[in-house]
C-alpha cells in the first residue's frame, strides 16, 4: 500500500475522529456521573446541528461563531430533559426504563425535526467550508481542522472545570458515590441536571463544528449515536480522556479501514471491532474480579 495514502487516511481519521471524540465525551460525561447509557445522544447532536443551521439561515451566523450560543442552549435543553424526565425513571432495580426512555426521546426528537424541517438535507456554509491547507502532499480540510481545535479546547476546558470549579468537584464527587456526595451536602439533583446539560452542551459544540462541513437531516443522529457508543467502549466508559483517544482511534480505524477493506464494508469492520472490544474487556474484568 502507498504510504502517502495511508498517512493521508490517518490524518483524515484524526480530523473525523475529533467529532467522534467530542460526542463520545458527551456520552461519557453522562455515563460517568449518572451511570446511565444515554441512547439519544445522537439525536441531541442532531438538535444542535439544527440550532446551528437556524442561526445560520435566520441570522447569517457563522457556525464556528455560533458554538458558544449553541452550547448554552443545549445545556438548557439537556438540563430540562434530565430534570423533568430522566430523574423520574432512574430506579434502583435495573436501567431498562432509562434505556427505553432515552430511545423514545430519540424517536421523539428526530420526528420533531422531521416535522419542522422535512427530510431535506440542509447545510450551513462557513467561510472556511471547502478551504484546504496543504502540508506537502497532504491535504487537510480547514473546517475539520477547526473542529479538531474545538475538540482540544473543549477537552481542556472540561478538564479544568472538573478539577478547579466547585460544580466540577461536586460532579466528580457524585460520580464517585452519589449517596456519599448527598451526605456531604451536595445537591445531587442539581449535579445530575448540570451533568446531563454539560453532556448535551458538548454534543452541541460537536454539532456546530460538524455543521460547517456536513449536512443535517432528521435521521443524522443515528449514525453519530452508534459511533458515540463505539467511542466510549474503545476509550473506556466514564473516562473523558478515554473518549478523546477512543474517538480519534475510531476515526483512524474508519478511514484506514476503508482503505483496506473498501469504503463499503468499513461499517461492518467497525462494528465487529466494537463487539470484540466489549466482550474481551468484560471477560478481563470478570477474571480480575474473581482474583
Amino acid at each position: 500500500m502507498n504510504t502517502e495514502i495511508l498517512i493521508q487516511a490517518i490524518i483524515n481519521g484524526i480530523m473525523v475522529g475529533g467529532i467522534y471524540a467530542m460526542i463520545g465525551m458527551s456520552l461519557n460525561m453522562i455515563f460517568g456521573v449518572m451511570k446511565i447509557v444515554n441512547f439519544c445522544q445522537g439525536e441531541l447532536l442532531m438538535v444542535s446541528m439544527y440550532i446551528t443551521y437556524l442561526f445560520y439561515s435566520e441570522l447569517g451566523m457563522e457556525p464556528f461563531v455560533a458554538i458558544p450560543l449553541v452550547a448554552v442552549i443545549m445545556f438548557g435543553v439537556g438540563a430540562l430533559i434530565q430534570s423533568t424526565m430522566i430523574t423520574r425513571s432512574i430506579k434502583e432495580d435495573g436501567d431498562q426504563n432509562v434505556l427505553f426512555l432515552t430511545c423514545c426521546l430519540g424517536i421523539f426528537l428526530s420526528n420533531t425535526a422531521l416535522l419542522l424541517f422535512k427530510s431535506d438535507y440542509r447545510t450551513a456554509e462557513s467561510v472556511f467550508s471547502n478551504k484546504v491547507v496543504s502540508l506537502g502532499s497532504m491535504n487537510i480540510s480547514v473546517p475539520k481542522l477547526l473542529g479538531f481545535v474545538a475538540l482540544c479546547v473543549t477537552t481542556v476546558l472540561i478538564f479544568l472545570m472538573l478539577y478547579y470549579t466547585k460544580i466540577g468537584k461536586q460532579i466528580r464527587a457524585t460520580s464517585q458515590n452519589a449517596i456519599g456526595a448527598q451526605v456531604t451536602g451536595i445537591r445531587t439533583k442539581v449535579v445530575y441536571a448540570c451533568t446531563y446539560g454539560l453532556g448535551a452542551a458538548i454534543a452541541g459544540i460537536a454539532g456546530a463544528c460538524l455543521m460547517s462541513y456536513y449536512y443535517v437531516y432528521p435521521a443524522v443522529g443515528n449514525i453519530y449515536g452508534t459511533r458515540s457508543f463505539i467511542v466510549v467502549t474503545m476509550g473506556g466508559l466514564g473516562s473523558v480522556v478515554g473518549a478523546f483517544f477512543g474517538g480519534i482511534g475510531l476515526g483512524i480505524m474508519e478511514t484506514v479501514g476503508s482503505v483496506i477493506v473498501g469504503a463499503a464494508f468499513k461499517d461492518t469492520l467497525v462494528f465487529i471491532v466494537f463487539i470484540l472490544i466489549l466482550v474481551i474487556k468484560e471477560n478481563l474484568n470478570i477474571r480480575r474480579r474473581k482474583g
Binding site: 457508543f229 463499503a264 466494537f274 463487539i275 466489549l278
Partner: peptide, 26 residues
C-alpha cells in the same frame, strides 16, 4: 456476549444488526 450486562448487551445487538445492514447494503 452473554457475559455483558444490561445496556452493553443492548449495544451489541444494535451493532450486529447494523453490521448485517451494512453487509446487505453492499
Amino acid at each position: 456476549c452473554f457475559v455483558l450486562s444490561g445496556p452493553y448487551f443492548t449495544l451489541v445487538t444494535i451493532a450486529f444488526a447494523e453490521a448485517f445492514r451494512n453487509l446487505f447494503t453492499n
